[in-house]
């Protein structure tokens, strides 16, 4: 398994291929629906330093506040990425993001962004919330908590050995497209059966 730590260079990312398993450490940022809409419509600068050469995590965590005022992730698996399809390519380009973690894969527009800017899509295991939270070693900060609410805020976190699979790479390979194509052949056969 490859070990990667943020910040990640464009060259490192361009060497990754769909199917590679990797273990990610370092600072990453959670962002989901409202955050993506905001990033594309308002292009805020406050998030810029956190995203450059780093990784976005599609996640709306369950978070607890410690007695000393710091935060702790309790459950934090990936959310479905396809909802960010209208926005992701623009976000990657605007903020020079090198990776996007989520589940379910993304479409053609995002793929164009990955190829053009040098970034990858990384798949985590959906529903594995408790296990993934254990990879979150520290919550550094939270931005827009009041405005967006806890699941949708930008959580700046430090992860250690977060296990991921590259499912879309910067050469245009997508495991999601491969599975969809193969299942579509089976689907057509099944639909034609008369009982």
């Amino acid at each position: 398994m490859l070990k990667l730590t943020t910040p990640i260079s464009e060259q490192t990312v361009r060497d990754l291929r769909a199917g590679d398993r990797l273990s990610l450490s370092g600072r990453i940022v959670t962002a989901r629906d409202s955050a993506h809409k905001l990033m594309v419509e308002k292009r805020p600068d406050f998030i810029r330093p956190y995203l450059k050469d780093s990784v976005i995590y599609h996640c709306g965590p369950v978070v607890a506040k410690n007695p000393d005022g710091t935060w702790r992730f309790v459950s934090a698996g990936p959310t479905t990425s396809s909802r960010e399809e209208p926005y992701e390519a623009d976000v990657i380009k605007e903020y020079q993001v090198r990776g996007v973690i989520g589940k379910g894969g993304m479409g053609d527009k995002t793929m164009e962004g990955l190829v053009k800017c040098g970034a990858v899509y990384l798949h985590a295991i959906g529903g594995a919330g408790a296990l993934t939270a254990k990879c979150v070693k520290k919550v550094e900060d939270v931005l827009m908590l009041e405005e967006l609410g806890s699941p949708e805020a930008f959580w700046i976190i430090e992860v250690e050995n977060f296990p991921l699979v590259v499912t879309m790479d910067s050469t245009g390979n997508s495991l999601h497209k491969d599975v969809e194509k193969a299942s579509s052949v089976k689907f057509k056969e099944l639909i034609q059966q008369s009982k």
Binding site: C59, G60, P61, V62, V74, S75, A76, G77, T79, I125, G126, G127, A128, G129, A130, L131, T132, A133, K134, P151, P163
Partner: peptide
């Protein structure tokens, strides 16, 4: 690997009383 991870998560969530999935 996905299913093994899921099984590991099920055990951990139960033992630690943490939500199995963050989307409750």
């Amino acid at each position: 690997v996905a299913l093994e991870t899921i099984l590991e998560n099920i055990v951990l969530a139960r033992e630690s009383s943490a939500p199995l999935c963050q989307d409750t």
